[in-house]
Design a protein around this nucleic acid. Structure first.
Ligand code: ZN
Length: 293
DNA sequence: AATGCTACCTGCGCGC
DNA sequence: TGCGCGCAGGTAGCAT
């Protein structure tokens, strides 16, 4: 299914990995590489491991047994015996399990397994990053993250705590990973639509009932995304090659000019926090105290 | 402390 | 047909 979206890579892939996409990849990887051994590790682009020397990075992982594949927000965590390999795909990072010799353009990292297969980290835009740490929870890149929205303990109070003392637009706050981990541009717009909250609403003006609604909507849209194996705008492959199809379930994201599925009014697009933002001006009203530009 | 803005990077669509 | 511009995205880092 196409959504009038026309940009994709030459290999036909166009996803923006947020929590549901990373979780989909995590589940596939878990079934594919758990208890496999890393026979070889090759850093093809030093930029990927900026924080460390490529050689040291490689040797630290070489020969290690993969004991778990986990996720924190949008970060993928491949546990080996005594270390954790943390990966962030950013926008264009992809993981493919395929023949170790089948190296395609833009491959940045090769994790060769104990057969002819390798996990290929392919990243056209080179924004993706990789780290190795002994203790993932306190690591610099995940230590500051907000609560996991799909954990049992996530409720409107934990959201309220993270918004305390702040005055930014709610969409800006949702894109800030310290507020809630894993929300990106797609699911921020979808969650705000589902909760009937205008994206420019200052967070200090959100009542507890609105925060409750938003909390529930965040959980709903993320779970829906996972249930549909993530959002893609073209011939998306997960690492196994099966397509995600959550794009067919989005209500407002990149639906500018199309009728709101709730009221029929045209979906609007604005730029907020330097990001495309889509909403229904009828279903998502600005509080009166916010002046219209 | 909180917030805003830019750099980073590349392929593709669009307009001329 | 060819070229160049602008867009898309998440995060770190810097400025205010
Ligand atoms: Zn509407």
């Amino acid at each position: 299914m196409l959504c009038g979206i026309s940009y994709m890579w030459t290999n036909g892939l166009a996803i923006m990995p947020e929590l549901p996409e990373v979780e989909t990849i995590r589940r596939e990887l878990h079934s594919q590489i758990l208890r496999r051994r890393l026979n070889n590790v090759t850093v093809l682009d030093p930029r990927l491991v900026q924080a460390s020397q490529p050689k040291a990075f490689e040797t630290r992982l070489m020969g290690a047994l993969i004991t778990n594949v986990a996720r924190r927000g949008k970060y993928l965590m491949i546990n080996v015996e005594s270390d954790v390999l943390i990966l962030h795909l950013m926008m264009s990072g992809r993981l493919h399990l395929r023949a170790r010799t089948d190296i395609r353009p833009h491959t940045r990292l090769l994790l060769t397994l104990d057969d002819d297969q390798a996990l290929h980290f392919v990243d056209v835009r080179r924004f993706g990053r990789a780290w190795i740490t002994e203790e993932a929870h306190s690591h610099e890149v995940v230590g500051h993250l907000g609560p996991e929205p799909l954990d049992a303990g996530f409720d409107w109070r934990s959201l309220a705590i993270r918004l305390r003392g702040r005055h930014v637009a709610i969409k800006t706050a949702l894109l800030d990973q310290r507020t809630v981990a894993g929300i990106g541009n797609i699911y921020a717009d979808e969650a705000l639509f589902a909760a009937r909250i205008h994206p420019e609403t200052p967070v200090n003006l959100l009542s507890p009932p609105k925060l409750r609604a938003l909390t529930a909507s965040i959980v709903t849209v993320l779970e829906s995304g996972i249930a549909h194996q993530g959002t893609t705008f073209s011939t998306f492959e997960t690492s196994e090659g099966s397509p995600g199809n959550n794009q067919g379930h989005l209500k407002v994201f990149r639906k500018t000019g199309q009728p709101c599925p709730s009221c029929g009014k045209n979906i609007r697009r604005i730029v907020l926090a330097q990001r495309s933002t889509h909403y229904c001006s009828n279903c998502q009203r600005k509080p009166r105290t916010v002046s219209t530009k």
